[in-house]
Amino acid sequence: MKKHFIKFLILLLVIFAWVRCAKNFPTDEDGLLITTRGQCYVGNFELLGADFQTVRTAAAVIDTTAQTINTTVMFGTDLKNLFPQFSLVTDAKLDPKITGKVDFSDLANPKKWTVVSGNRLVRKTYTVYITVQPKP
């Protein structure tokens, strides 16, 4: 009886270990879930100043075909200290990551971010064009 019990226990442990190690939910290098979604676009774009208030004069124009974002910021905006915020399609992520203030002052060389789809197979690079409201 005791012998059978030990055998059953070992079998149970092996099954448990095997199930635990099976990779049913793959994740990427950031630990984010890789899903089946192939959509890859920016839904909304916000630009905040050092005071975390918007610096836009109107909603940003997002062209998902041309992969561009155009926005006009207020006269006097401090372009060296801005916080961009992207709203992406479900499961997508941004590369490179935004970790703090971004310097947009070099208007001739607009900043670029790549949107990576949920299945991590589609990558689309968006260019952010900023126009400063001209002095009248």
Binding site: M74, F75, G76, Q133, K135, P136
Partner: peptide, 20 residues
């Protein structure tokens, strides 16, 4: 109060651009 832009109340360094 400048038409077309929002300037209103400002604190500006003397050495800042004359635009401000």
């Amino acid at each position: 109060n400048i038409a077309g832009i929002t300037f209103t109340h400002a604190l500006v360094s003397p050495a800042a651009s004359t635009d401000y």
